[in-house]
Design a protein around this nucleic acid. Structure first.
Lengths: 221, 221
DNA sequence: ACAAAAGTGTTGAGAGTACACCCATGC
DNA sequence: GCATGGGTGTACTCTCAACACTTTTGT
């Protein structure tokens, strides 16, 4: 087959954007302004331009939706069933993003471009195969939290152990024993003490930050 | 952006096909008959047709190259850098396939379509980013062997424990202790005895096959 | 003194690893 | 009886899970 004569599918990048706010794991969805599935909530995404890589496309979307750059971003899976989009043949490369809620500057919603954070425990109905994509993203998220230090990208640079533990409890939706958690984290030896909490009506906590050299795969939980 | 006006990248599916033969882990490569990289060895693949899913495209290629269907097949990663293919913008969805060497019927090589098995320890030079794809596939392969029962797809339905162990030793390129290996496999409790070896000049081995219900994720090594 | 959260140690169970000898068969 | 691979148990170490009390601070 000649390269230029080949009839091509459309390619989109959809990014499942997670954050942790208000003691819950949340995901950013946008309201569709056009058919199909007009009015339904969907995972934000768009077509890949010819002059940008897949990752750049994901970053561009992310910047447009949340005003945030320099976030954790990783490719998930590529969905390519024939009839997944009623408009025609569309292949979607999905991405996972983690953004620290302190840094979010959501651009104000307009009628055609409404974006909203949803608690992953209370998700709306989706069009396309977005439910499948989201489930996949959730599975990967948990895996990443369990085996790698990605979780730290959702915390400020200086944090307390109890904040880290809380984060893990939210993501895994269960409680951990404070002593065991502390032991585990310290044994991994990638935190450094960087100060102490001030002006709190209880015993001040030590503050930690991540050492610069941390292995990518480690067993965390 | 209107759906039909959008200028689209080309999409290919490349499949890294592994087997174990002659006590080594091998991968199937094809010799490129056209520029660019004419004469170089490459991972087999081709353009995705509009009326086939990504997985179907991978299966079609696999059938064409090896004459085998019903193999283990899984998506790996999608490579989408702008300049990865000198012909133009090409996005490649990579797949991993495992095929039992007993079932291979390689179609005879012609001058334009030469295919050959390479020991993964002695790979040739590649064009494109195929080295990167292969490294990714190797990493995933090991992960899969460690945490899931995929390995069994490379064995006949009835096999000896020592054959299973040998397979693992080849994939991980190290030896395992026979007693510990046996203990581990039996403790997982997904093998059933299905007979006994005949006519061998040594103590006959028990033959096993996989139980029908086996969890997808289990720690094997 | 009280409220709030921080910090810390021990014990038992289970899994992984290291290691060596006897067994069943065909020739 | 010999050559070949098959089959099996024990002891040590390490990690994980369960569990409760004292400390430090601000008010």
């Amino acid at each position: 087959m000649k390269f230029d004569e080949y009839e091509k599918p459309a390619v989109t990048v959809d990014t499942v954007i997670f954050t942790v706010r208000n003691d819950s794991l949340q995901v950013l969805l946008v309201k569709r302004g056009v058919e199909p599935f007009k009015g339904n909530w969907a995972i934000p995404g768009g077509f890949v331009k010819l002059d940008e890589s897949l990752e750049d496309a994901a970053k561009r979307e992310l910047k447009e939706e949340t005003g945030v750059k320099d976030v954790y971003l990783e490719q998930l899976y590529t969905f390519g069933e024939i009839k997944r989009d009623p408009r025609g043949r569309v292949i979607t490369v999905s991405y996972l993003a983690l953004i620290n809620s302190d840094k979010i500057v959501l651009t104000p919603s307009t009628d055609v471009n409404e974006a909203k954070w949803f608690n992953v425990k209370h998700l709306p109905e989706f069009g396309f195969d977005h439910r499948k994509i989201l489930n996949y993203a959730l599975k990967r998220l948990k895996w990443k939290f369990e085996y790698t230090p990605v979780g730290f990208s959702l915390l400020p640079t200086k944090f307390k152990l109890s904040e880290l533990q809380k984060l893990y409890e939210i993501v895994f939706d269960r409680e951990f024993d404070k002593r065991n958690f502390s032991k585990k984290i310290h044994s991994l030896n990638f935190l450094k003490e960087v100060g102490i909490e001030k002006d709190v009506p209880y015993r001040p906590s030590k503050l930690y930050s991540l050492k610069s050299k941390v292995p990518e795969i480690i067993e965390l939980i």
